[in-house]
Design a protein around this nucleic acid. Structure first.
Lengths: 337, 337
DNA sequence: ATGAAAGCGCTAACAC
DNA sequence: GTGTTAGCGCTTTCAT
């Protein structure tokens, strides 16, 4: 890799002039500029970003930490962030925590040494402690929220989405509705649960504690929880299920199949988050869809906008909430007679 | 962020000694070492990797370029690579090309400035040109291959996998077997096609050109190609389909549903690459499974091993090929009478 | 065992 | 408009 020194030498100018010709073209005479540019092209020059970042004390780099890159929801978030970062001339470093706070801590520590200018984070339950590793780094919390009042957040309307899903089931005539809900130390799970409960109360349908089962967001958790609900005595068993995330919804469908139940004839199912699975499963699933890619883009745009703003306008961090959409497909119908 | 200068000052030593105490503990007296370590802990010191990399002229960083992070196959490869890199104390920079050679070129160019010590690449059709941007950088080609004789490659036995899938269909009694194949400028597609053809010839089943349709690896391509095959006159229409990748297989299943065909009663389908879709679709799909995560891990291990080897043992680059496994589920059966 | 000093490649004052 | 110089934070000779 040729350095700016070689470019300068070939163009017969000082390194300072070469540098200016490349990054501030208007500070240099046209003839000189052309000589430098041609020399650079000739040598296939590419600036060493390490040296540049070290000198400028800014890396044009951001950190991106998600909890499960194998989940298409997170992969889509990541793509949105990376595409947006790219458009702004930034590079995003992607880390994966597998929902493990320990791994999250280590990821943030590694990241720290790379001097990112900001961080986009889908937080684990202990993110707030972990974030103390990076004081006064601009942070955007994505999808979920830690409760830190200083953080910018980009989320969806989980309460509204859950309400819509529940109201849909109620409108179909269901009165024994179960929910499979994520860990209660994660904000999305709490909010979706709240929306569910609220919608039931609002509609005058009893909220039954024993029909709400927790899971850790994985397909197998969804399956286990659904099996427990489906194995209740016939007069207690829910006729409809609202499931708190995409993977657990797949598990719930598999559970229904295992028990030989027809969807939606014997059991209606609504999932949170649309996915290819939801569209291609049989029957196609009714879901609360999220603008996933846009969430990622927005998080990144907001973060980068924050850099360029006068330092002390941090008074009130942005709190963006995007709407969800109920997509009615074929996994929901009236309860069995 | 505190620098090594502050650590040195606090410990009452020179920066040189502080540096040694942190990275070469045995070069320093025990008492000094302890003072430095305690100072570092106190200040929450984290070395600036930019400065270190600049000085040492090695970044402990590798590039990772995949063609579609939204495809779980690629997400799994990426996770394998990142987990392995992490274990070796390396950081992997992930880029996404969307199967677009132009984007690939730009990704490699950006990467170049970050001085990665090596590169793991799922190449696009024009990768060989693009790679000229990075002369004498150790490269591992993953999943697919450019034909560059100097590159290390990590792939699966595509020919064998395709043969096994085809032989399975033949053994069930199919004689009109169609294939939906990827772009012919991508090595995996060529090899899977070759395996298909070879298996037919070996079994004495005629290979019919008109039953082999190309697609660009996306679900919708698979759907379109399948529709064309399924709309052939009844006596020409294939009774079984072998589909060249995971996404196109989903498309083929949807096409069959659209035409009201029963799988496997009216049409058998085998896909290449297992996936959650394949397992949860109805019926569960018979597939050629690949050791995807291991491919990623292996690529990374091989790349990093390459750094540590004496420079001129590059005589013969490694060529690793992992086996595939035919998983027979319920999308394949005897042809209709 | 430790310190002084040079230098990785780049950009930003500060001259002129 | 261009050159000279200093310095980002770190590691590594080379002395002592």
């Amino acid at each position: 890799m040729s350095s700016i020194q070689e470019v300068a030498a070939l163009a017969n100018v000082s390194t300072a002039t070469a540098s200016r010709a490349l990054s501030r073209p208007d500070m240099v005479a046209q003839a000189t500029r052309e000589r430098v540019l041609s020399a650079a092209r000739h040598l296939d020059y590419q600036p060493n970003v390490l040296a540049r970042s070290l000198r400028q004390r800014q890396t044009r780099t951001i950190g991106l930490v998600v909890t499960d890159i194998l989940n298409p929801f997170h992969a889509t978030l990541a793509k949105g962030v990376q595409d947006a970062a790219d458009r702004h001339g930034y590079t995003a470093f992607l880390f994966n925590t597998d929902e493990d706070p320990g791994k999250e801590g280590r990821a943030l520590d590694t990241l720290r040494g790379h001097l990112p200018q900001g961080l986009i984070l889908v937080p684990t339950a202990r993110a707030r402690e972990n974030l103390r590793l990076l004081p006064n780094l601009p942070v955007v919390e994505l999808d979920r929220v830690t409760g830190n009042p200083a953080a910018t957040t980009v989320t969806v309307d989980n309460v509204g989405g859950a309400e819509a899903a529940t109201a849909h089931l109620v409108a179909l005539g269901h009165t024994r509705i179960g929910m499979i809900v994520g860990q209660q130390d994660i904000s999305t799970a709490v909010e979706r649960h709240a929306g569910f409960r609220q919608a039931l109360l609002g509609a005058g349908v009893p909220y039954r504690e024993q029909l709400v089962l927790p899971g850790h967001h994985r397909q197998e958790d969804g399956r286990q929880a659904a099996l427990r609900l489906l194995d209740l005595p016939a007069d207690e068993r829910p006729t409809a299920l609202f499931v708190g995330n995409n993977e657990m919804t797949v598990g719930a469908v598999l559970a229904a199949r295992e028990r030989g139940l027809n969807i939606p004839g014997d059991l209606s199912i609504v999932g949170f988050d649309d996915s290819r699975w939801a569209q291609t499963m049989l029957p196609p699933l009714t879901v609360v869809a999220q603008p996933t890619y846009d969430l990622g883009v927005l998080a990144c745009d907001l973060l980068i906008a924050q850099f360029s703003r006068p330092a002390r306008s941090r008074a009130s961090p942005a709190r963006v909430q995007l709407p969800t959409t109920l997509i009615v497909r074929q996994s929901t119908a009236a309860p069995p007679p």
